[in-house]
Amino acid sequence: MTFELILFYLFGAILLGGALAMISVRNPVHAALFLVLCFVAAAAVWLLAEAEFLGIVLVLVYVGAVMVLFLFVVMMLDINLAKLREGFTEYLPVGIVVAVAMATVLVAVITRYITMDVPERAGPEYANTEALGAILYTEYVYPFEIAAVILLVAIIAAISLTMRKRPDNKSIDPGQQMAVSREGRVRMVSMASEKKKSPRRGAQGGDADGQQDDPSK
């Protein structure tokens, strides 16, 4: 058993264990964290298969961005676990039927269509990122661009759905804040200096008291 094989089984076991734990734990935050563990283990398996671009991008996009937002939502929601589990036994038979059907189809597809030998190891000169880029920007450039445009449409749709003007919003226009100048805020007054006089002791004239500095002036 080579070191790579040991690593493969190790990460495979983590992946499967994490997936099982994800659907079985009660706390939704724990479930999301187990999903993160699954993604990391899957990325490691991809790295072992010399698909380093896919592995690293899985960590970068799904672990680093998507799951963070997912955790945000799960942590903020007030989830009533008892209500969620209501009627679990009622739906269980349907669920089992769907799961068995899915598993059968998956096994059938994998065993019938995907029969391949162990791929040969590419040398250290092989860069998966470069290979993917070369094929994506030549052969599949139109599907790739169309997918990008569809994503753009989705972004714009999401923004336009959530953007609304609220009249009670007290937000300040940053342009106005930037445009503030010294002249608009401070008025410099030029005036002649005046003789010091105290309104209370003014009648007594300039004695010792009047020469002390008055902080209120």
Binding site: E52, F53, I56, A127
Partner: peptide, 21 residues
């Protein structure tokens, strides 16, 4: 490694988990 820059991006994006958890 070949994909060193991607590796750096991926790892620096993992730091946020410590904060959230």
């Amino acid at each position: 490694v070949n994909a060193g820059l991607l590796y750096l991006l991926a790892l620096t994006s993992l730091g946020v988990y410590g904060i959230i958890i």
